[in-house]
């Protein structure tokens, strides 16, 4: 027998192996059932992972939203006066027989008004008196602080603020810079510590100067009270005091 015919013989013998070898159909069906169970388990596992994935995503989203709400609460200046025990911005104290809110050390950090203006402005005679009131915006607390600066002349410079409900400096500024001239008032736009401000000065013998400072969050109102003579409380004094405000701590 030559090599070629030997190889052909082997090839035929090898091809025959495929047909001569048989795996029991019963066993094959058993393996099929095991395979089906394995696939089913994999599907369940895969579904569980998907659900776990969704749940994780939802919980992370909610956690982030929760943190965001807390953060917004903090950013909301004196909103949320009672954030937590550590972050308490004011405490209630009995003053003159009445319970009043008093700013804590933490609360004082967010006061825009300068406590030492009297060192810079000669007409101011001492530290301001801070009046604190607490209001509610929805479920949130809003702290309002009014500063009253004493002067050597017996009058006071009063500063208070309200929320800029528009959230826009541009929009709110329109209220203080009218398109038509105001009778008896000269309106000038100025810049105070990087903020837009509007100086309203009387053009008559009556009235007194007022300065309105508009920020994204608030509108500050500065006026003279107890004015004996309009020359005593001029607009220059208001602007100098406003320039000492620290708007960076505004929250």
């Amino acid at each position: 027998m030559n090599i070629q015919s030997e190889l052909n013989t082997y090839n035929r013998a090898l091809q025959k192996v495929e047909y001569d070898l048989e795996w029991s159909q019963e066993q094959a069906d058993l393996v099929r059932r095991k395979l089906e169970r394995q696939i089913y388990k994999e599907k369940v596992k895969s579904r569980a992972f998907k659900i776990f994935g969704y749940l994780s995503t939802i919980s992370i989203t909610f956690s982030l939203l929760f943190l965001l709400v807390i953060q917004l609460g903090n950013e909301d200046s004196f909103v949320s006066g009672m954030l937590s025990k550590e972050e308490k911005l004011y405490t209630m104290e009995v003053i003159d027989g009445k319970e009043r809110p008093v700013l804590t050390e933490k609360g004082m950090e967010y006061v825009v008004y300068p406590m030492d203006a009297h060192k810079e402005i000669n007409t101011i005679s001492g530290e301001p008196f801070l009046g604190v009131s607490v209001g509610k915006i929805g479920s949130k607390e809003q702290i309002y602080t009014q500063a009253i600066y004493p002067t050597s002349e017996g009058r006071f410079i009063s500063v208070h603020y309200s929320k800029n409900e528009t959230g826009s400096v541009e929009e709110m500024s329109r209220y203080f810079l009218p398109e038509y001239p105001l009778y008896g008032t000269k309106v000038t736009e100025i810049n105070v510590s990087g903020q837009r401000a509007f100086l309203h000065e009387p053009t008559t013998e009556y009235g007194s100067a007022a300065l309105y400072i508009v920020t994204k969050n608030y509108v500050y109102y500065m006026t003279n009270q107890g004015l004996l003579n309009k020359k005593q409380g001029d607009s220059e004094e208001l602007v100098r005091l406003a320039n000492l405000f620290n708007f960076e701590v505004e929250r």
């Binding site: 082997y10 013998a13 090898l14 025959k16 192996v17 001569d20 070898l21 048989e22 795996w23 029991s24 019963e26 066993q27």
Partner: peptide, 14 residues
């Protein structure tokens, strides 16, 4: 035999 069957003719080559 109930699992795998191999015919006699292929046993040698297998």
């Amino acid at each position: 035999e109930n699992v795998v069957q191999l015919k006699e003719s292929s046993k040698e080559i297998h």
